[in-house]
Write a protein that binds this DNA or RNA. Structure first.
Lengths: 203, 203
DNA sequence: TTGCATTAATGAACAGTGTTCAGTATAATT
DNA sequence: AATTATACTGAACACTGTTCATTAATGCAA
């Protein structure tokens, strides 16, 4: 009975094709301009077909959200190979910033955009983010325990650290750095991050 | 010839009414759900009328953007009364966070949202933001010069500081704090900010 | 192989969006 | 009173997300 399996596979492939087209359009033209009809056009199916595979537009972008988190985890996972906690913390920050600047649309989708969150609040996509954050917390805790950095509560230090990096990146991604006219935000972000790190470092 | 003046006044008042309705709807229901037609309904005019006073929807929200920055300046201006630079820096942060949490939609509009920026890039609305940022820079420079805080370049320290506060706030405003389930983000943000401040402080 | 049931895909429609424009009604000027 | 200028609007266009009855294709049992 290979038929049921074939059908299942075809269903998966169709989902895949929709997501591929959606991601391509989304990265190319942004969220606003990526309509169901355009996705349908791209895969040469009727708009209604997409609703056989996804509940609504939110679910499509939620899936992209999940996939983006997948790549995010892969990227952030590299930091586990760095033994020294202090160096690891620095590494995490740099990789985070790099990921965000290299994939601004996906970062936007994950940490800034509003739309895809509304439908599903409980999400395994977020679990990945949670894991990444725990990785940071663990690292910060190690640094604190070994007396390498300043700070009281590792949770708040982690949060502050995440917040600062997200803030730097989010302002750049959403084009809110008009005061540094024309300059490449990349350098500023890294410079500011270094400043944060040196602030954090004891002596 | 009071007629021309009356007409001009009426034009201003109409603009005002549109903006008022737009702001009310926007704060109440968010950007997505605030349509030109609903604004028109609220002021009991036809949708087409709005286009006699504003080029397009972007311009309406750009104007709100500008107004929000006005209130922002007023709020931030309070910090000028704080003489001690260290205390002033702390004050700026607290007021900033407070403004953002008290007016999340307006903060969103100013520093996160995408839509209103696309039409006009050159903006006097942003000049206010610029001024506020310079206020922070000045304060940071004072603190650095007096040897009160850590750091090298005052510009990057300011940027890092702004970034960190924006990051903390933006994550809250856009609902990205799922790891702290159900807890009030307000306390976390202030706790994290305190951590940032104590990190920054020398000894 | 034929007939039936299941599944997949669609066209058309609904209610909504931003925006434009010809036309109307009102007010101001001559 | 006739003419010009201004303010406003209804209707339309091209979109949007979404639903649903209808059609086309497929799988299965007789």
């Amino acid at each position: 009975m290979g038929i049921a399996e074939r059908k299942e596979r075809e269903k998966r492939e169709m989902r895949e094709r929709i997501l591929e087209a959606a991601m391509r359009l989304f990265v190319e033209h942004g969220f606003e301009k990526t309509s169901i009809r355009k996705i349908a056009d791209a895969i040469e199916y009727s708009p209604a077909t997409i609703y056989l595979y996804f509940k609504d537009k939110s679910e499509v972008f939620f899936e992209l959200h999940r996939m983006a988190f997948g790549r995010f985890r892969e990227t952030m996972g590299q930091s586990l190979h760095v033994a020294d906690p202090m160096e690891r913390m620095r590494f995490i920050g740099r990789v985070y910033i790099d990921f965000a600047l290299q994939n601004p649309e996906q970062y936007d989708l994950m940490f800034i955009m509003r739309a895809p969150m509304e439908s599903k609040t409980e999400t395994d996509g977020w679990e990945v983010g949670h894991k990444a954050f725990e990785m940071l917390e663990t690292t910060v805790k190690e640094c604190l325990d070994q007396g390498l950095i300043q700070g009281e509560d590792y949770r708040f230090v982690s949060y502050a650290l995440w917040g600062s990096v997200h803030g730097l990146v989010a302002l750049a991604v959403r084009d809110r750095l008009k005061m540094y006219d024309e300059e490449d935000p990349r350098e500023h972000i890294f410079a500011a991050f270094d400043e944060v790190m040196s602030m954090l470092t004891l002596n």
